[in-house]
Design a binder for these strands. Structure first.
Length: 626
RNA sequence: GGGCCCGUAGCUCAGCUUGGACAGAGCACCGGACUUCUAAUCCGGUGGUCAAGGGAUCGAAGCCCUUCGGGCCCGCCA
């Protein structure tokens, strides 16, 4: 809590002055000054008052700043009415430095109580277990993971779920391949099983269905067997999908992503939750049995402004979104939990990964939330809107179920070309079915190779093991940052060549600033001593760094309230730029005197500690050398 | 036909929720800085009718309306 203190102080003093002068109450804004020459903080109060007071903004700004001069408080050094009408403030850095440095040293710096320990579910990843993860999935995973970390730091009680659609058509496709298509259940040497299933079996089988009607029939049969869940086929499919899932999870873990529970669709289907929810919707009048027209004999959701949606076909079989409704209600804790839980794995960070089971031998645990965030790309917006509406009816409360949508990842024309797809210069939609995608593991491998070479060149003294570790950390940092830095409603056009860039606004740039800071502290002759005055920090480079460090909790609050992970990415970048500028202009170890060296060591230390926390939120690790 | 999203520098994007000070970054391009705490860096330069038009406002990239361009979604598939 630092810059926030300055903002709060200014806000409340302005409020006080406005009251003293009997001005009408206005929702004025206290924010960071747009340019250095305007000072550190600006307020637009005079503009807002100008309307009712019928005076020029400057005139009002002038009165207010004169009044403010009488008591400048703890954190303000100067107040000025700018000709434009803004009231501008210069911070009292003697106070701000101390306050920022002291707070940012603390272990839980940046923690902010937005969530008030509310139980919240974040569901993400949710990839069909019949293929490897491609970069489109990576965007989902990284958004979900980052949001869950931000919510955790904002004092929500977060549970992270990964929904495994193990009973759908896509799974049936590869099962047919193994049972009737002649594909071995053993992958070729050197290939991951998930890659084999997706790149070879799934893609090839999809082609074969086009020409072989016999196989297509088998698929319908297999799909039915999967849903019933008792047959030999279902058991076989279960073995296969779990094998694929475990390979997918390796990729997620490689990206630094962990979960609390795997929820298997097949078990949701067999749990009979649907029946309960179906009856509930009937009794609430949410769905109706259509008596006539094209949907005759179906249970549908009526919609005034959109097409009616069929939930139960005229043959009595539920459509696929009918699986999502009980699951959504389950996530919100609105149904008696039919599941038991057994341990699936212990993840690298010590977090236990559980999985649902219907066997009563498992534990009874709690993975539901008062609020639920489901991360799914915006192509599903229509269906998610329906589910959101049904959930708010169920709960008689708006906003408990939230669809966090985002635009998809497409491939650049050049990258599509490397897959043999000619788009005549336009970007290409990815398709697992058609084999148009870039696998996540492959991207990480290619990035890793490049970062390994770079790291080796720069650090000839480092051993092989360290180099490999660093290169992997940087590769993951590069990919994660690229996936999170832009807004959710912007399409990411993925270009393989461009993604290898490690300069400028990238993850590695930020990580590099951390490595630089680490080396300064490592090479310093003494540990930083914080029991001193920081008045000696006076250059713009030092003060800007202090200010940047002091913004952390404000950024987290913003990101958490708006579920906008890119805010943290931009903050990390801002921190890194500010530090790199400082680094190039201000010497730490060779500063004029010992006390200045110490004071600078202290801000370098605080920068490093704040950056590592911010990067943690993005799931990006901070190597001390690179 | 209906719905959702996008359009800001050659390219990729911030800024838009909550209107105010000369519209900011990165990449690319041009020039400069490594016997120095790692040059994955820094400093400077070139580059913009904020898609177009209209409206409300003292004031619009931002709010409202219209148009144009691009993407996605609209099955008794999942």
């Amino acid at each position: 809590m630092t810059l926030r203190l300055l903002f709060d102080e200014i806000r409340s003093r302005l409020k006080q002055i406005s009251d003293e002068l009997h001005y009408p109450q206005v929702e004025f804004e206290v924010s960071e000054a747009a340019r250095p020459e305007f000072g550190d903080v600006s307020c637009n109060i005079a503009f807002l008052l100008a309307k009712t007071l019928k005076k020029r903004p400057l005139e009002i700004a002038d009165i207010i700043s004169k009044q403010y001069q009488k008591n400048k408080g703890k954190f303000v050094k100067e107040i000025a009415a700018h000709p434009s009408g803004y009231v501008n403030f210069v911070a009292n850095f003697s106070e701000l430095n101390n306050s920022t440095i002291t707070s940012s040293m603390q272990k839980r710096y940046g923690d902010i109580n937005v969530g008030k320990n509310l139980k919240i579910v974040v569901e993400h990843t949710s990839v069909n277990p019949n293929k490897a993860l491609h970069i489109g999935h990576v965007r989902n995973i990284i958004i979900g993971d980052t949001v869950s970390k931000i919510l955790h730091k904002s004092q929500y009680d977060v549970r992270v779920l990964n929904y495994v659609d193990d009973s759908g058509l896509q799974v049936a496709d590869i099962i047919v391949g193994f049972k009737y298509g002649g594909y071995s259940t053993e992958q070729p040497k050197g290939q991951k099983f998930d890659h084999y299933c997706g790149d070879v079996v799934y893609v090839n089988m999809t082609e074969k269905y086009e020409t072989d009607s016999n196989l297509a029939e088998k698929r319908t049969l297999v799909l039915k067997e999967l849903e019933e869940g008792t047959s030999e086929t279902a058991k076989f499919a279960n073995d296969i999908t779990r094998k694929v899932l475990d390979e997918q999870l390796k990729t997620c873990w490689r990206l630094g992503v962990t979960y609390d529970c795997l929820n298997f669709e097949s078990q949701v289907v067999r749990s009979n939750l649907w029946k309960i929810v179906f009856e509930k919707m009937k009794s609430m009048g949410i769905i109706e049995l259509e008596k006539e027209g094209k949907n005759e004999g179906c249970w549908v959701i009526k919609s005034a402004d959109e097409e009616d949606k069929v939930l139960v076909r005229s043959n009595g079989i539920a459509t696929y979104i009918a699986k999502d409704i009980p699951y959504a209600a389950w996530k919100l804790g609105m149904l008696d939990d039919p599941f038991y839980y057994k341990k699936h794995a212990e993840q690298a960070n010590g977090r236990i990964l559980w999985e649902t089971t219907l066997e009563k031998t498992g534990n009874k645990l709690d993975f539901v939330g008062e609020k639920v965030i489901t991360v799914i790309d915006s192509r599903q917006s229509r269906l998610q809107k329906l589910i959101t509406k049904i959930m708010s009816d169920f709960k008689s409360q708006e906003g408990a179920y939230f669809h966090l949508g985002y635009e998809s990842v497409t491939l650049s024309a050049d990258t599509a070309k490397t897959l043999g797809v000619d788009t005549s210069g336009k970007e290409a939609q990815m398709s697992g079915r058609k084999g148009i995608y870039i696998n996540a593991d492959d991207v990480l491998d290619i990035l890793g190779k490049k970062t390994y070479e770079e790291a080796k060149k720069r650090n000839p003294d480092l051993d092989e093991l360290s180099l490999v570790k660093i290169s992997e950390q940087v590769a993951v940092g590069a990919l994660r940052y690229a996936m999170i830095k832009q807004d959710l409603d912007k399409i990411i056009t993925f270009d393989l060549t461009e993604s290898l860039s490690l300069e400028g606004d990238t993850g590695p740039y930020i990580q590099y600033s951390y490595a630089r800071a680490s080396r300064i502290l490592e090479k310093a002759e003494t540990e930083p001593n914080f029991d001193v005055s920081f008045d000696g920090l006076t250059t713009e480079y030092e003060l800007n760094l202090v200010k940047a460090i002091g913004k952390f909790d404000i950024q987290i609050e913003d990101a958490a309230k708006n579920l906008s992970p890119k805010i943290i990415a931009r903050y990390c970048y801002e921190l890194a730029v500010t530090f790199n500028t400082f680094y190039e202009h201000v010497k730490v170890l060779t500063a004029e005197d010992k006390s200045l060296i110490n004071a600078r060591l202290c801000i370098v230390y605080c920068f490093k500690e704040t950056l590592v926390k911010a990067l943690d939120l993005l799931g990006i690790s901070s190597p001390s050398r690179m």
